[in-house]
Amino acid sequence: MSDSCGGCGSCEEKYCEGGTDRKQFLRGVVGVFAGMWGLVAAYPLYLYLKPAVSKAERTTVESVDVGAVKDFPLGTGKNFKFGSMPALLTHTKDGEFHAFSAICTHLGCTVQFRDDMQKIWCACHGGCYDAATGKNISGPPPKPLKPLKVTVAGDKVTVSRA
């Protein structure tokens, strides 16, 4: 009987040649089963931890009344809530209103309008955007801010999806 055989005596020597005996085979089987169980367990675990988004959360807001025109002097801006998204309204010195998603395209911070700079600015990494177009003009942001549509009806300022 070869050294690699478990020595149970129930097998012929020829089955023990080549180094694979019953013990090694069983170890292999245990390994394969453990791996399979691991994979099988990972699937429900992933689904359990994956965030479930309810229908109510999926409901998207189409428009928001931000306030009256007199609330926004020329050359100012205001952050507001647009559904589940932070948004920003700017009233540029040319008298036009503009609105954007306030999520910085760099690393997701919430941007703000800086009166002193007359620009949209992100406090996290110093990225700057144009207050009228939302275009990224300096700093690390790679893309412009997502635009929203502004409607002024009478004295009321309404922001809706572009």
Partner: peptide, 23 residues
């Protein structure tokens, strides 16, 4: 969650070098 990031916001010192690098 809907307010702008506060001016002067910085992470803890041990993430500061990465934060500054990304700037």
């Amino acid at each position: 969650p809907f307010a702008a990031a506060p001016i002067g916001i910085k992470p803890e010192w041990y993430f500061l070098s990465m934060f500054q690098f990304l700037k």
